[in-house]
Design a protein around this nucleic acid. Structure first.
Length: 555
RNA sequence: GCGCCUGUAGCUCAGCUGGAUAGAGCAACGGACUACGAAUCCGUAGGUCGGAGGUUCGAAUCCUCUCGGGCGCGCCA
């Protein structure tokens, strides 16, 4: 029942009629907006068409508005009032009865209310987290995880076919460094006086790993490590750490469809194929003994090396191959979520995507870093230094739902301050509980009704005319607007819009609940309210579902 | 030095890509439980949207300059 679209069509048709009647002169209808009015005095919806059309029509906006209004052909009973306001806005006041339809709509669709077919037939991959398996996930990864997962849910709700993917960067010398780190910890355990390398991973988890390694019956390495040994140790450590990462993500409510290993790119010779493709297209050249990609042809600052003079391919080469592979796997769109510390890398990958013919199909979302505080004091977050707060600790301390909700109340491109003490101490005033409480409270209402022997009777739209309170209409309008909000959030790849909506809906509900009793002797009114708040419950659950936050029946 | 992100109430953040009188949550202050869950509600106070120009009917939003914060600028990953 897209109200905005309905109004938009009415307006456009009216303008056309005015032109046909010689009342308005214009070539093509300019882009105009139909927006929800901010203030009640401005009605429900407003359009700026008269303002944007005035110049072309060479008449004052208010006269243009009048010409449009004169020819408006709205269905009987839909509009309560239409007026011209301010510089030339046309305000539409929708009749109360019109809003009742949304309850029927929610009743008909159930948990699917809010879903749409916007992305039908579009296959999209969301790649996120993709942290190197050299240490446990930290809070920054948590933000990326919450965002990626919510985004995937959002795209899925809007009809896209979605796959979640985690890219495991397990080639290159960091595995060697990892092996070296483990080696030195093992030597330490053996009582050898060794100096831990400065470039090693210094976190305590490496010590634990070393102990577990021995406890599992593996032989301690000798004093003269071979390159093979280090690599083997590195692989071992990587596997263990990756298992830990999976486990943490699982507890954070995030699961992936595919764990894609960089090693696989080489096993399948995809990197060479990537080179071949770029060469075929004429975007590769040799210079200074290295192989270069002409990134500058696609807007990057400089050309980029894909194979070094020593013959080794670069990380970028892997990524080119990886993304070529992604598109060949049939994804129409690919969304990559990276930490903002990699933002300088985006132009070259975009360049590669363009070179390969996938212009506009790759979107890179940069999620700004999380500055972590504990009671206002900054907490160091370097992986190498070892003193950092892990995602695990955050989950244990503040809880999955609260953490996810906090991450998802911020735009990705804004830095986020996360104070562990606040997130946890706040618990009773935390927005996440506010929203969850609204859901649980409604569940409780239905439990209470059942306990009193009051049943939710057969669905009967005729009773909705009893819903006349300002609170009830405000809620109806919010519910009616929800599906469009989901689409807008998906289009912009911004789950935080859902978060804010939910907080507002919960506020409306709490206020309504406090002022008016749902269960009363008035059977018709009670039933009408049941169906109304049942709709609220459904939408709260839907929105929380997108965020990956529980919608509890009790708290 | 160059590039990207950012600056909105005391604090943490929204502001639907240019709309009408800039919002919410904390924190502060004052009220509301013998009623469906007080993890709630009602009210008060709090702002030159970092600053200066410009674009136009109209700017927190777009452009230029400027100041402050974050990040990045390898034949590393």
């Amino acid at each position: 029942m897209h109200i905005k679209k309905t109004i938009r069509d009415l307006i456009a048709a009216s303008a056309e009629r005015a032109r046909a009647a010689g009342q308005l002169a214009f070539d093509t209808l300019p882009a105009f907006e139909v927006e929800a009015a901010k203030h009640p005095e401005h009605g429900d919806l407003a359009t700026n068409l008269a303002l944007v059309l005035a110049k072309q029509a060479r008449r004052p906006p208010r006269q243009v508005a009048q010409a449009i209004i004169d020819r408006l052909a709205a269905p009987e009973g839909m509009l309560r009032k239409v007026e011209i306001a301010g510089p030339g806005f046309i305000n539409f006041f929708i009749a109360d009865a019109f809003w009742y339809q949304v309850i029927t709509e929610i009743h008909r669709l159930g948990p699917a209310y809010g879903n749409s077919e916007m992305g039908a037939g579009v296959k999209v991959q969301v790649e996120f987290v993709s942290a190197n398996p050299t240490g446990p996930l930290h809070i920054g990864h948590g933000r990326g995880a919450a965002l990626g997962d919510a985004l995937a849910n959002l795209l899925s709700a809007t009809g896209h076919t979605v796959e979640r993917e985690y890219y495991i960067n397990d080639v290159g010398n960091q595995i060697l460094t990892l092996g070296k780190s483990l080696y030195f910890r093992l030597r330490e355990l053996a009582g050898a006086a060794v100096e831990f390398p400065a470039d090693g991973y210094q976190g305590d988890y490496m010590k634990d790993l070393a102990r577990d390694y021995l406890a599992a019956g593996h032989a301690a390495p000798g004093p003269e490590p071979q390159a093979d040994d280090l690599l083997r140790l590195g692989r071992y450590a990587g596997d263990v750490i990756l298992a830990g990462i999976k486990h943490d993500l699982d507890d954070f409510g995030v699961t992936f469809d595919t764990w894609f290993s960089e090693t696989e790119l080489y096993r399948q010779h995809l990197v060479d194929q990537g080179f071949a493709r770029l060469k075929e297209l004429g975007y590769l050249y040799e210079a200074d003994g290295a192989l270069w990609f002409k990134a500058t042809e696609f807007g990057d600052e400089k050309d980029r090396v894909v194979r070094r003079r020593n013959g080794a391919t670069t990380y970028f080469a892997s990524d080119v191959a990886y993304h070529l592979h992604k598109f060949r796997r049939g994804f129409d769109r690919v969304v990559d979520i990276w930490g903002a510390d990699h933002h300088g890398y985006a132009p070259r990958l975009q360049a590669a995507a363009q070179a390969l013919g996938f212009t506009g199909r790759l979107q890179v979302i940069l999620v700004q870093l999380v500055s972590l505080l504990r009671q206002g004091e900054p907490v160091a977050m370097t992986t190498r230094g070892g003193a950092f707060v892990t995602l695990r600790e955050v989950i244990d301390e503040v809880g999955k739902d609260a953490a996810r909700f906090i991450f998802l109340t911020r735009r990705p491109d804004a830095q986020l301050e996360f104070d562990l003490e606040v997130a946890k101490q706040q618990s009773s005033d935390n927005p996440v509980y506010y929203v969850q409480y609204a859901h649980a409270r409604l569940a409780s209402v239905f439990r209470q009704a059942a306990a009193q022997g009051i049943e939710v009777e057969e669905f009967d739209p005729a009773r909705f005319s009893r819903l006349t309170l300002p609170e009830e209409l405000a809620i109806l309008k919010m519910l009616a607007n929800y599906p469009e909000l989901v689409e807008v959030a998906a289009r912009h790849l911004e789950p935080h819009r859902i978060t804010y909506f939910l907080t507002e809906l919960a506020a409306q509900l709490h206020s309504y609940y406090y002022k008016h009793r749902f269960i009363s002797d008035d059977v018709e009114l009670t039933q009408a309210r049941f169906w109304l708040v049942s709709g609220v419950k459904t939408v709260l659950a839907h929105g929380l579902g997108i965020l990956g936050v529980e919608a509890p029946e009790t708290m």
